[in-house]
């Protein structure tokens, strides 16, 4: 195994560790931070089961966004399509992580390709809207462009790997499985793969320290995840 391969194997482990530990750290921090008062945005469900029913359409269909006007409808289109494509692409990639490849993952191979092609378009909507609307231009930070740019770069290098800079997939799979089984092997001989892979590592490291934590936040946001039963059940917090 050459030096570059050793470095990348090591970086991959570091990135994975930062992602997992960083994410868990935030999860634990949020869990340990109390909500001293009942603050669900009402009307709110009266039972825990009701909260689950409230959250499902929020997570799957970004329901609250649909309450807005045309700006939010455009955002919804870009955002929802982007997230669904992202999911399909990840599912497609699971064939590199499994041996033998389960039948259900084979199902996502073709649809994953289509998702990969739509992916940059959805991201383009998300970027362009930030330029065209004066309110969005005002609130947008460097971090917002950074993460959109990063994901676009990941998507494009992926497409390049598929259509133009084709690489030996057997080598790629061997490399990934090597990582997973803790028996690292040589990097695939492909600069494009190296770029694609590096960008994914950056995304993993960036994730827990950024707004991307909304992925977890949406599930525990007190205004949405609290039960509306303050008269029936006394809500207490140790410090209060």
């Amino acid at each position: 195994m050459n030096g570059l391969s050793s470095v990348f194997n090591l970086l991959a482990y570091i990135a994975a560790a930062v992602f997992v530990l960083g994410f868990l750290n935030k999860v634990v921090l949020y869990f340990k931070t109390p909500s001293p008062l009942k603050i669900p945005t009402t009307p709110a469900p009266k039972t825990s089961m009701g909260v689950v029913v409230r959250l499902i359409p929020e997570v799957l269909f970004f329901r609250s966004l649909l309450k807005g006007g045309i700006t939010e409808k455009i955002l919804w289109l870009g955002g929802w399509v982007f997230h669904v494509c992202f999911l399909l692409i990840v599912l497609r990639h699971l064939r590199f992580f499994t041996y033998p490849v389960p039948e259900c993952i084979m199902f996502f191979q073709q649809i994953g390709i289509w998702a990969g092609l739509v992916f940059p378009l959805a991201l383009l909507i998300l970027i362009v809207r930030r330029f065209l609307n004066d309110r969005l231009a005002t609130i947008t930070l460097f971090a917002d462009y950074f993460v959109l740019g990063l994901i676009i770069a990941i998507g494009s290098t992926g497409l390049l790997l598929k259509y133009f800079a084709r690489t030996n997939l057997v080598d790629v799979k061997a490399f990934i499985l090597g990582l997973l089984t803790l028996s690292p092997v040589q990097l695939p001989d492909s600069p494009m793969f190296l770029i694609h892979f590096s960008l994914v590592l950056i995304l993993l490291v960036y994730f827990p320290f950024s707004k991307l934590m909304h992925a977890w936040g949406i599930l525990i946001s007190p205004t949405r995840a609290q039960v509306d039963n303050p008269r029936e059940v006394r809500h207490v917090t140790p410090w209060a």
């Binding site: 935030k26 809207r129 930070l141 007190p222």
Partner: peptide, 16 residues
């Protein structure tokens, strides 16, 4: 306050 902590972290500046 969980609300303050989580809200400060997770806003994506979507503009809604």
């Amino acid at each position: 306050y969980k609300s303050v902590r989580v809200f400060l972290d997770i806003c994506v500046r979507c503009g809604a």
